[in-house]
Nucleic acid binder design. Structure first.
Length: 596
RNA sequence: GUGGGCGUAGCUCAGUUGGAUAGAGCAUCGGAUUUCUAAUCCGAGGGUCGGGGGUUCGAAUCCCUCCGCCCAUGCCA
């Protein structure tokens, strides 16, 4: 019911529920009517119901007449208080809902702080146990630009799920048990490196040793045999190799930990592939016993005949290879062991994997295999999702690389972001003391980098452009941060706390005030969209539009006017904009600034 | 070959899953500041939504067919 007493966080769902109920007791509609309520173009109202059109089509009725009937029934039902929402019929059969000033006012008073928003959003995923697989870095390799998206997108999605009430486990599924350790150990021994003696950037050294090692293997086949022998020794628990392996993993973890801190990435647990090395036998056994897996060319594989591409009679056979022909495990084996562990140990109801687009086949096979396996063994089957993304491109539309064609180190990227941000901050605001400019620049730089990664639809490739991401114009982090900084500036000058309640506010009046207020009420819808598809760019678009509405308001209506109710009303809008922007930025993993 | 993604303004991107006259930013042009951060705001021009066909009240969105780009395609992750 759309009343003052019971004000839902998301008005759209209330309208939808009410309409469904009204339609159910309406002769022309019935139980199966789906109202399809969504945000409307502001010129039509706040929300619109499109469901009548499709319903009329399916039933061979006149949509406009049906819409009129539903509208009449809605008005008669008493569920829509005319002082709070105005209903109207438009076009071929849309029903538009326009919230009144009174409704907007009530909503803004009920949902004022980040905690209020969270209490509203927290019902969306209340208590769901979700394991998120990210950022899953590899050991013994320096992080590069390819690690940017898993950190940025993964963190944003994890925060969103937390915010929406999920009980999340962020599991860093690191690659710490691959064939590369054979090569690495071979080369370490060959060069007689003492890892304890390496002081400066030991990860860079490991990176180099691996590159040298694999190059030498190609030139000298006997070294390849040595590497295989070292790997085998490691896998059999040889003390020397195990100790080397531990050092390599520690060096990698330390180096990544520094990056996680800079990037604001939080991790709950870090169970790498090595953790599952004694758990893959059970996978082989159960999948063989259930008849899901079979032997093929010496390997243990799973065919999925119902999917053409993975069927055994496909022209190009593409099985899910879960044990290599030499008996060793691969990432399919460990991923299977991992999902079982997540369900048995963490009681995961959902498991979300974050990787780039190229791994779609792997996850499709993994999910199919898991379903069949868990089904036959009577294990609870979790909801599985593969959240994937496109490539970061340079201006030439090819994968973004250094001029010499190498992949860009993540640290280099972060440093350059901060340097460039410092130049911008210095240019725009040279009055600030050096130390503060530095601090602002590092926040702005990282924010710009992250926001550029989040603002476009993740399934698309995007073009990396320093100037654009650091611009104060357009859909960028600086534009959003600037809006927050300006709000803070107003409260600072007024000597008020933006987080304290504001008393004595008069009603909203101007066009700019109302547009802003309506936009503020759009947060729940934006969160819904973002959560449904796990696509952070929906949230970005919303925040950008909100900041735009605020900037227009800021230019049109002076906040610190003499008339107390007007001033209080505008300050209230400022405070709400601030808390909404800060909430949204927080969800994106971006830190807001007091001033810039 | 098969599968996935994609093609929207000169450039970079949205477009709530079939809805109302396809929207932003940059760039171009024209305006706004004795005023809370102008690092902003307001306005104008700019489109055969890759081409063609189909489905229907209605298509950038769904189907078919071409053209073009990216990615994956048996034991790397």
């Amino acid at each position: 019911m759309l009343s003052t007493m019971q004000l839902s966080f998301n008005p759209s769902t209330v309208i939808e529920t009410a309409l469904r109920q009204i339609a159910a007791s309406c002769e022309a509609f019935g139980e199966d009517f789906e109202p399809e309520v969504r945000a409307a173009d502001p010129k039509f109202g706040d929300f619109q119901a499109n469901g009548v059109l499709g319903f009329a089509k399916r039933n061979g009725k006149n949509p406009r007449e049906l819409a009129q009937q539903l509208l009449d029934a809605a008005n008669k039902s008493g569920q829509f208080d005319p002082t709070l929402v105005e209903l109207s019929l438009a076009g071929p059969g849309f029903i538009n809902f326009k919230c009144t000033r009174a409704y907007l006012w009530n909503w803004l008073n009920q949902y004022a702080t980040p905690a209020d928003y969270q209490s509203g959003a927290g019902k969306l995923k209340a208590g769901r146990k979700v394991v998120i697989d990210y950022p899953s870095a590899n050991t013994a390799k320096q992080a590069h630009i390819g690690h940017l998206r898993p950190m940025v997108i993964g963190e944003a999605i994890a925060r969103l799920l937390d915010f929406c009430g999920a009980d999340t486990v962020r599991d860093n599924h690191i690659g710490d048990w691959g064939t590369n350790f054979g090569t690495l150990i071979m080369q370490i021994k060959r060069e007689r490196i003492d890892l304890d003696q390496v002081k400066e950037d030991p990860l860079a050294l490991l990176d180099q040793l691996y590159k040298d090692g694999s190059r030498l293997e190609k030139e000298q086949p006997n070294l390849r045999d040595q590497s295989r022998a070292e790997l085998l020794k490691l896998q059999e628990g040889d003390p020397e190799n195990t100790s080397l392996w531990e050092k390599i993993v520690d060096i990698s973890k330390d180096a990544f930990e520094k990056l996680y801190q800079q990037m604001g990435v939080q991790i709950d647990i870090s169970l790498g592939e090595s953790f599952y090395r004694d758990k893959v036998e059970r996978v082989y056994r159960e999948l063989t016993e259930t008849g899901i897996a079979e032997h093929s060319e010496g390997a243990l594989v799973v065919w999925h005949d119902e999917v053409k591409k993975f069927a055994r009679d496909n022209e190009r056979p593409y099985p899910f290879n879960i044990r290599k022909s030499d008996g060793a495990s691969n990432y399919a084996s460990t991923d299977l062991a991992t999902i079982l562990y997540r369900v048995e140990h963490f009681k995961a109801e959902e498991v979300i994997y974050l990787t780039d687009a190229r791994q779609q086949d792997h996850f499709q096979q993994l999910f199919l295999t898991t379903q069949k396996w868990f089904n036959l063994c009577n294990y609870p089957t979790p909801i599985t999702r593969h959240v994937w993304w496109g490539t970061i491109l340079g201006k030439d539309k090819k994968p973004f690389k250094t001029k010499s064609g190498e992949s860009i180190k993540l640290q280099t990227l972060l440093d350059e972001a901060c340097e460039r941000a410092l130049a911008v901050v210095t240019e725009k605001n040279s009055d600030l003391p050096e130390a503060e400019r530095q601090a602002i620049a590092s926040t702005v730089g990282i924010a710009a980098l992250k926001y550029a990664d989040l603002a476009s639809n993740r399934t698309q490739d995007y073009v990396f452009d320093w100037d654009r991401m650091l611009s104060f114009e357009g859909n960028t982090a600086p534009y959003l941060l600037y809006a927050v900084a300006r709000i803070n500036s107003i409260f600072r000058k007024a000597e008020l706390d933006p987080e304290s309640p504001i008393e004595g506010a008069g009603p909203l009046e101007t066009e700019a005030e109302l547009t802003l207020a309506r936009k503020l009420m759009g947060l729940p819808g934006a969160l819904d969209l973002t959560l449904n598809d796990l696509r952070p760019h929906f949230l970005c678009t919303y925040l950008y539009e909100l900041a735009g509405a605020y900037s227009s308001f800021y230019n049109a209506d002076k906040v610190m006017v003499d008339d107390p109710p007007t001033r209080a009303g505008r300050l209230l809008l400022c405070a709400r904009t601030r808390s909404t922007l800060m909430t949204g930025l927080e969800l994106l993993g971006i830190q807001a600034l007091d001033r810039m």
